[in-house]
Amino acid sequence: MAGHAVEHDYHLIPPSPWPFLSGIAALVWGVGMVVFFAGLVPRTGESPMLEFFFSKGLDSLQDSYRAAGDKVGADGGWIILVVGTLFAAYVMYGWWKDVAAESKAGDHTPVVDIGLRYGMIMFIMQEAMFFVGWFWMFFELGLFHKMRAAWNPDVLENADEYATSMAPGIKGVDPWNLPLMNTVILLLSGTTVTWAHHALIHGDRRGAKWGLGLTVLLGILFTFVQGYEYLELFHERTEGHPWISTDAFGSAFFMATGFHGLHVLIGTIFLAIMYLRLVKGGLRPEKHFGLEAAAWYWHFVDVVWLFLFAFVYIIFAVGM
């Protein structure tokens, strides 16, 4: 670049296509979400554009809305969603590849490195507030169910039962079974990732690989156990096990654990990328912020799980 010589250590980045493409990917993905989950059907025939793009034709939805209050999913919504997801994945791949290359090229000077740390801390704070929302919802349901039962017996189905339990007729998930196992898995993975980190610092790349590899495996294992638990609940949902749509407890249970699961998945991918970089010879003992960030994130996911385990599983089982 022209102009004066640069005399500072900050990292100025040349123009990059990824942000702009991310915006487009987000648009495709978002439209896909709506079309997939909600359907997208013009109510009247006034818009030929919409008619052209969306498959359901022009029958007026008025009556079906009135009758069912339900939405009609459009065929083919999943295609948009998949395209959006692949697009987003491609953009992320390209973006992170650039970052890794810059890191290798030495653009991440000490001051830039500190900036990255600030950035990661802020990002984790943001994630924590996201979970505050879900826990708040859960606690509200758990603490005030008696009041709601008293408020309006006509509207609340099983109002009497709600007066004694936040989720009438629902046997909570037994915390000392799969959830306990998952707790152990996550706690263990917290130690393996620390092992990997220390090993890397001490130049023991073999140990680092083992630690990180194990962490990734434990992360995958967690996801499997969680998925298995969901499946089991799905099969037994009629027999007094919670399910997402049975009542508000089921909703809170599945959305909170589900979003946690999503974060486990993200964390696992994050760690897996670090593993690949490690195997390919990246990540130096003195400079490996990527790994540290992944570890921070992983610990955060761990802590959220402990809260879930304590409140959503144990306390509910004991009775809330």
Binding site: E127, G133, M137, L141, M166, A167, S245, A248, S251, M255
Partner: peptide
């Protein structure tokens, strides 16, 4: 992020057969 959580709740509540966070009939 708290708004994001609330918006997600609306989104899943709106899906037929979805969650019941804001549905008094389901607690």
């Amino acid at each position: 992020p708290v708004l994001a959580a609330a918006l997600f709740m609306l989104f899943t509540d709106r899906i037929a057969g979805g969650t019941g966070f804001f549905d008094p009939a389901r607690g």
